[in-house]
């Protein structure tokens, strides 16, 4: 058997692929659903926190900034393991996919808050004053003048961050969520062959390449240069 044949039978084995393909494909639904749930929850909570911060309550802002810093400093896998192994022992048992969703949403919310807040502060003060002087209330000025501009500024950095946090759904395999990687790893050990991992790799690339390419063109479109 030549090297090439050995490589093909280890990584591109058609028999193994045919056998485990449906199971791994079922993991795509889990990965995509958890990913979408994380994106929606994380971004909405992040936006909510940034708006809360713009109200200027000193106590609330201190809490938000510290919480965001902690979530930016902690590795997501540490958060996942603490929640997954710790909470059942104090009487709160959550299914592993809920743990994954909550942990990643919290991490994304922290980053999104930071990005939206940077966007809000980047909108010139004159916009606020003009909006208020035309008779809009604070809330109206925020939602129909400032936020639309802030969100536009926030889109490119937020896209990158969202993609890299969504990719962390693969960490679910460490706590037994049956997403793509988890299923591929167990198929790999059943089959004694690396083909399931190749399938998983291809599926991840199919899911994320369009997002990465889209984020590249978004960045081009909204490119802003310092000074």
């Amino acid at each position: 058997m030549s090297d090439w044949d050995r490589f093909v039978s280890a990584f591109l084995n058609v028999n193994v692929a045919a056998r485990y393909w449906p199971d791994i494909l079922a993991g795509v639904a889990v990965t995509v659903l958890i990913g979408l749930a994380v994106v929606v929850t994380g971004i909405l909570v992040g936006l909510g926190l940034a708006v809360l911060r713009s109200l200027g309550n000193r106590f609330a802002n201190l809490l938000i900034v510290q919480a965001v810093d902690v979530l930016r400093s902690l590795p997501p896998l540490v958060i996942i393991l603490v929640i997954y192994f710790g909470l059942p022992n104090v009487g709160i048992a959550l299914p592993s996919f809920v743990v994954l969703w909550l942990s990643l949403s919290a991490v994304l919310a922290a980053f999104a808050e930071e990005v939206f807040w940077a966007g809000i502060t980047a909108v010139p003060q004159g916009q606020w004053m003009a909006a208020r002087s035309t008779g809009l209330t604070f809330g109206q000025a925020l939602t129909s003048v400032v936020l639309p501009q802030a969100v536009r500024i926030a889109i490119p950095p937020l896209t990158n961050r969202t993609i890299s946090i969504t990719k962390n759904t693969a960490l679910g395999s460490a706590i037994g969520v049956s997403e793509i990687l988890g299923r591929a790893m167990s198929a790999q050990s059943f089959a004694g062959n690396a083909t399931p991992l190749t399938i998983a790799a291809v599926l991840y690339v199919l899911i994320f390449i369009p997002l990465v390419v889209a984020s590249r063109s978004l960045e081009r479109r909204y490119a802003w240069r310092r000074r």
Binding site: R6, F7, A10, F11, I163, K167, N168, T169, A170, L171, S173, L181, M185, Q188, N193, A194, L197, T198, A200, A201, Y204, V205, I207, F208, I209, L211, V212, V213, R216
Partner: peptide, 24 residues
């Protein structure tokens, strides 16, 4: 660059650590 940015690092690590031994 785009390929490795769209690849979850854990998948890459598992692929290299437990996939490559199958190729010797």
């Amino acid at each position: 660059i785009d390929f490795f940015r769209s690849f979850p690092p854990l998948v890459l690590l598992i692929f290299i650590y437990s996939g490559l031994p199958f190729a010797g």
